[in-house]
């Protein structure tokens, strides 16, 4: 990261709102991106406003509801409170990166089959959190799913269909690995 501002300059030279005082290099859904941005900018602002990746949503803005979850170097983070400057040199994955060539991936298909969404506003966050879970634990128990996804809110579904979707996705993956048709 480069910055035009240095500690020695003190408060007086703190960049004005909107001044793109630092430059980052990152990879977003496999695409390399280099941008100058305001160091105050959050990751979700960078994704939604600069890159027009509006799939990632904001609700609470306080790091509690999980709708803004994206993966930074495979770790789930709340992009509403994560500074965009901090993805410098890292790889970001968002909901837009899940489908391959227009086809839903196994997790997305499982969400559809289990009716694990209604309004869909929480869905990008759940998909990214569940992606992180399944990458760590390809066969999570119901308890593990509930624990891992407890920080993601959904007001529409009553959650059980989401639990079922994650289990179905795990089973589907196991089936694919075992050579069975999914």
């Amino acid at each position: 990261m480069t910055s035009t501002d240095t500690a020695a300059d003190g408060v007086a030279s703190f960049p004005a709102a909107g001044e793109r005082a630092c430059t980052i290099q990152t990879t977003v859904n496999g695409v390399r991106v280099e941008r100058a941005l305001d160091p105050r900018m959050t990751l979700v602002e960078f994704l939604r406003e600069d890159l027009e990746l509006t799939g990632t949503k904001v609700s609470c803005g306080l790091q509690v509801c999980g709708v803004c979850t994206v993966l930074v170097d495979d770790q789930p983070v709340s992009s509403c409170t994560y500074l965009a400057a901090d993805v410098d040199g890292r790889a970001v994955r968002t909901v837009e990166g899940l489908a391959r060539e227009g086809a839903l991936n196994g997790l997305q298909r499982s969400f559809a089959e289990e009716f694990a969404l209604q309004c869909g506003f929480c869905t990008p966050g759940f998909l990214m959190m569940a992606t992180a879970l399944l990458e760590r634990d390809p066969d999570p128990t119901e308890e593990t799913i509930r624990e891992y996804l407890d920080g993601n809110f959904c007001r529409c579904t009553g959650y059980q269909p989401i639990v079922a979707a994650v289990r179905r996705a795990a089973a589907r993956k196991a089936g694919e690995a075992g050579g069975e048709p999914s």
Binding site: L53, A112, G120, T123
Partner: peptide, 21 residues
């Protein structure tokens, strides 16, 4: 029949447009 909802595709890929988008 419990046919799959046509709005799911857009909502699962991040393509669905809400007012905020």
């Amino acid at each position: 029949r419990s046919v799959q909802r046509p709005d799911f595709m857009a909502k699962l890929t991040g393509a669905a447009q809400y007012t905020v988008d």
